[in-house]
Design a protein around this nucleic acid. Structure first.
Lengths: 278, 278
DNA sequence: TTGCTCCTCACGTCACGTGAGGTGGC
DNA sequence: TTGCTCCTCACGTCACGTGAGGTGGC
């Protein structure tokens, strides 16, 4: 018979731990003095304590350990272990992803480079229906894109599209460029469902669900693009993802006129794919 | 200006999360209606929210994120990231160790083998001073060892060693075998400090700190040894450790006579070393 | 009498999830 | 009037660590 202190030393655990195991019924002392409440453990119980510790070292919860010690079938045990293995594999992967992010940032500091990645996030973007006005642009860069977008916005208002369909999110832009140098700028408004009829040249499309690297930047377009795409691409590269342009640009807020463009907030999304398990 | 629900959707977080960030002062709404308590967020704040999320994805705590956003020096930032990297590396290693344990046990189930490892634990055993009686044994196995140990126990009692030194733990045995077939059995009693004088053939020694695989088994010695050493060795092997015999055997409890040997509890310790980082 | 060990509450941990119970605008 | 969104408590999570405040045997 050992006192709780002796037994704790033998088992290499804290006294508090033994009290906890008593409390939850995982390891009850063989005897508790009715008068003083002192707990007494037998040498024999050290085996059970050791088993508890061994199972905890596998990362099982105390609830699982209790089930195990209660005498479980081999199938149930296997199921429990398989579950834990799956959890562990996920945790390891998540940790390694975090490590990649940390390493990338440490790298920027060592190279004394400005850190472009401090506001870049991974996001799942749900599939969504949008109403779209497409327009050709003469080239990349804000100089070429902004006027086209502005004209599309005016057209949207003139046609009173908002009356035809309930918007479920803010305006966004996405691009398409086929073979050749043609660039198509698409001004899109997410809607709950396909509108019954739409005036030309407005059309309805469904954008697929994507996983994307996301940054939120504030300011006039010329100060943001195309830098932000480089930042997003580098972030994805550091995490081992392959980007799949074109990106999407969401106007988070509506500003009244161009003079306030310094307050314009963009969310820029660059889709990527994860490397296959091959 | 967005309501909390809209802002949560934009940021891809829960409403509760935003309330939490408000509560801890990490992200305060730009405006709170004095009458209704409604929170209002600006588009501009989406940048800060994104930064918070990006830092959380690195596994930083909200306290660390707050410090970061409060504008920290580059050195402090680097320190924070280095700390987190060290943590992550440890976590990954711990998880991979757990995974090894899980895999080993799944292997036993698949091969339909009895599981020898369900009570084996890793332990750091502190260095300790012991008083020792050494005696030669004719060979391995309980048949050879037990009588030698019994005689040593009697000698201990006859010499009244316990009067010379305060014991700090139960009796234990450890072995030595030099070149040749000579086996030395050492019966040892841990003591707080080196006794002033000891009657021959008792000597004082200091056992080094070791890391060991540990099992607790109950029953007569013949039913436990040498099986337990095989189990311990297999456990160490599965975890990638190299064992460094000889082991130590601790008599956890004192039994009165041989007839109760079925209640004898042994803790068997097999030291090992971890593979170097080479 | 001073230490040492034991006891029972009970709060704190970390970042929210999840009701309970109630209010205000379409 | 019914939904929907918003609000404020406040408990629960997991396995203990850490006091606070008190008792009993050497």
């Amino acid at each position: 018979m050992f006192s709780i202190g002796e037994f704790a030393r033998l088992g290499g655990v804290s006294v508090r731990t033994l009290r906890h195991y008593d409390e939850i019924g995982l390891l009850r002392p063989v005897r508790v003095d009715a008068e003083t409440g002192y707990r007494h453990y037998s040498a024999d119980q050290l085996g059970r304590l050791n088993r508890i510790i061994a199972m905890k070292e596998l990362g099982l919860t105390l609830t699982q350990v209790r089930q195990l010690l209660a005498g479980i079938s081999l199938d149930e045990l296997q199921g429990m272990l398989l579950l834990r293995r799956a959890q562990l594999e996920q945790e390891i992967e998540a940790n390694q992803n975090q490590l990649l992010g940390i390493e990338a940032r440490l790298g920027y500091i060592e190279r004394e480079t400005a850190m472009p990645a401090d506001d870049i996030t991974m996001k799942n973007i749900q599939a969504m229906g949008v109403v779209v006005i497409a327009a050709p642009a003469p080239g990349w860069g804000p100089v070429n894109i902004v006027p086209v977008v502005n004209r599309a916005r005016e057209l949207f208002d003139e046609l009173a599209i908002s009356a035809h369909a309930r918007a479920t999110g803010p305006f966004m832009i996405f691009y398409e460029h086929d073979q050749g140098n043609d660039i198509t700028v698409n001004l899109a408004l997410p809607v709950a469902e396909q509108p019954a009829k739409l005036p030309a040249p407005v059309s309805y499309r469904v954008l697929p669900e994507v996983e994307a690297a996301v940054a939120v930047r504030t300011g006039p377009a010329a100060g943001i693009f195309p830098m932000v795409y480089q930042d997003l691409a580098r972030w994805a590269e550091a995490h081992g993802y392959a980007t799949t342009p074109p990106g999407r640009e969401v106007w988070v807020n509506e500003i009244d006129d161009a003079s306030q463009s310094a307050q314009q907030v963009f969310e820029i999304q660059l889709p990527f794919t994860r490397p296959g398990p091959t």
